[in-house]
Design a protein around this nucleic acid. Structure first.
Length: 289
DNA sequence: AATTTCACCAACCGCTATTAG
DNA sequence: TCTAATAGCGGTTGGTGAAAT
């Protein structure tokens, strides 16, 4: 567990009529108390738990610390490509419903996803001088970033294939299980309706929509050809064809077969856009603003 | 080397929904 | 049924380390 050493001196104490409550960063001692108490007694009402565990914290603070950091199934580390894709897709469906999105990313907390969105995705919207909730930005994600993530995921899988056939089999299976229901989002049927739909609020079987996946744009994907050229007729947005002339964004102009711009750690949306793309998008948005 | 800016993320706040009495 | 307590959610803030100047 990555519990950074923190000073336990000089706590921020909040005076109340009943007791002094501590705020701010948790100390190792507090973490240990909370973990220890829950491991023995289990979870209960957080306020009474905080008191019983000897923590001068609100129940609310204890709950948050447990859920976001201490519970054993919390997954830490960089957001993977697959997780990035899921976040983009699910956010396009549900918006800022972080806890709902987090349900589909095991081990990730709503807070972590929210932070990812705000620091990575919103940053790019800002760079493009557009609102993160604007249709232009959403379409950029849907028709440019998401397909590119898929490309990278598949490229990584291909690499894994050559490196280790057996390992790749496992990798493919896990990626497909995670992405199949979500990649179906690219199909035309879903594109037009998914944005406002909340119909999948009930849990969807991870592999229930595999037909959509294989019938969709991704089924036609070939890493050796221009994705958008290959799928011009399929890439019709809810308001028009983005690959034709007109007011829409002509992603068909973008040369796709070039290197990614990024820091090479495979993390962050900036890896998905190269310099030409970025210039192009900025140009588009500046004109459309 | 010192300072400033940026990026990240843990934690808090305010609000709403749910539950218990 | 009503009310208070609690849980949960989404938005925001502040601290910290890294990178840039």
């Amino acid at each position: 567990m990555d519990v950074k050493a923190r000073s336990s001196s000089g706590p921020n104490m909040v005076s109340t009529e009943e007791e002094d409550l501590k705020r701010g960063p948790w100390t190792i001692e507090e973490d240990f108390k909370l973990i220890n108490y829950i491991s023995i007694h289990g979870k209960g009402r957080w306020n009474s738990l905080a008191h019983s565990a000897g923590l001068k914290r609100t129940g609310k603070s204890c709950r948050l610390r447990w859920l976001n950091y201490l519970r054993p199934d919390v997954r830490r580390g960089n957001i993977t490509l697959e997780e990035q894709l899921l976040i983009l897709q699910l956010h396009s469906r549900w918006g800022n419903r972080w806890s709902k999105i987090a349900q589909y990313l095991p081990g990730r907390t709503d807070n972590e996803i929210k932070n990812y969105w705000r620091t990575r995705v919103q940053k790019h919207a800002k760079q493009l001088k557009c609102d993160v909730n604007s249709k232009e930005f959403k379409d950029t994600m849907r028709y440019l970033w998401m397909p590119r993530l898929v490309e990278r995921i598949q490229a990584a899988t291909t690499t894994a294939d050559t490196a280790s056939a057996s390992a790749a089999t496992t990798s493919n299976a896990s990626i497909e299980q995670m992405l199949l229901p979500n990649l179906s989002y690219y199909t035309l049927d879903n594109v037009s309706t998914a944005a406002s739909s909340d119909s999948i609020g009930t849990q969807v079987s991870p592999i229930s929509d595999s037909t959509d996946y294989y019938n969709g744009v991704l089924a036609n994907y070939n890493p050796n050809q221009d994705y958008f050229q290959a799928n011009h007729e399929s890439l019709i947005s809810p308001i028009g064809n983005y690959c034709n002339n007109g007011d829409g964004m002509d992603f068909g102009l973008i040369e796709l077969n070039h290197h990614w711009v990024g820091d090479g750690d495979g993390d962050g949306l900036h890896n998905l856009l190269n310099a030409e793309d970025f210039f192009f998008l900025q140009h588009q948005f500046n004109f459309n603003m």
